[in-house]
Structures are given as structure tokens and as C-alpha cells.
Amino acid sequence: MKVSFKVNGKSETVSVSADTPLLWVLRDTLGYTGTKFGCGKALCGACTVHLNGRAVRSCQTQIGSIAGQDVTTIEGLGGNHKVQRAWEALDVPQCGYCQPGQMMSASALLSTNKNPSDEDIDAFMSGNICRCGTYPRIRAAIKAAAKMS
């Protein structure tokens, strides 16, 4: 089926089966490879994007269900988002594979909670796995980003 939606503000129309996860439409059809495949079951958070400003797991979001809606990927954060600046200032990434998902979750958290506590961060970010163990820096970077304008 044909589905039209917006990615990072740009209108896109794709012809794929309606059950195709947004993840694979972004990666394979449209070439937004910043969004990562990690588990395919919403268990790891690597594929996190924003749907109408809220964090969703793109591996569990069927393309047929989001016609006309707004998707933001890591590419759409723009590179100068306060979360990206904080991540860069603290050199958060190690292998870096999970970090787009981490930053999409973190930016969604900060959009609704301007000053998250450790508990808020734990609750919101516990769906994003990092096997390299960058969690102490993720916590610090979210707090640093919260202080940025």
C-alpha cells in the first residue's frame, strides 16, 4: 500500500506492505540509517524515534498505522540539539550503536520533564539497553542537557 507521512519535516510517500515496521521503512526504503535495529521486539530501544513528538519503538510501529503523522529520527534532531551537545561534551558513546535510540528517548524525556531526577531518568530510560555500559554518562548528559538552553 501507499503511505504518506513526514520524516524530519519532509513529506514522504512509500509503497510497502502495511505491516512493515517503521524501522525498516526508515532504514531500507528511505535511507535513514541512524535509526538502529537491535531486537525487533521493543526490548532494547535502539530503534527509538519520535512519533508526533513522543518516543516510540519504530520496530513495533507499523507503517500502515501512521499515515499523515510526523516522525523525527536522530537525523532530524539536527546535530545541535541540547541532548546531542551534552552527549558530545561528555563523550557518552562507546561503540555508539544504541546511542541514537538513547538520545531520542532522552530528548523525549526532556520535552516533558525539564529537570528530571535520577528516578525519572531511570524510569524513562530503562527501555534503552547499552551493552557498552555508558549509563553513568547518559545520566550525567541528560542532567547537563537539562541545564542547557
Binding site: D28, E75, G79, E88, V92, G96
Partner: peptide, 27 residues
């Protein structure tokens, strides 16, 4: 000293194996 790969990794542009795109390739 900062990591030289951080800028790529926070923008989603670092090329992992799975991100390889070659014209004409199949999955």
C-alpha cells in the same frame, strides 16, 4: 582529549556494518 568518533555517533552518521548501502544491493 575528546573522542574523534563522537560527532558521528551522536548524529547517527557513523557507518556500522548494518548501515552499509551499495547501489543495487538486496537484503
Amino acid at each position: 582529549q575528546k573522542r574523534l568518533d563522537t560527532a558521528m555517533k551522536v548524529r547517527g552518521t557513523a557507518g556500522f556494518g548494518i548501515d552499509t548501502r551499495i547501489p543495487g544491493m538486496k537484503y
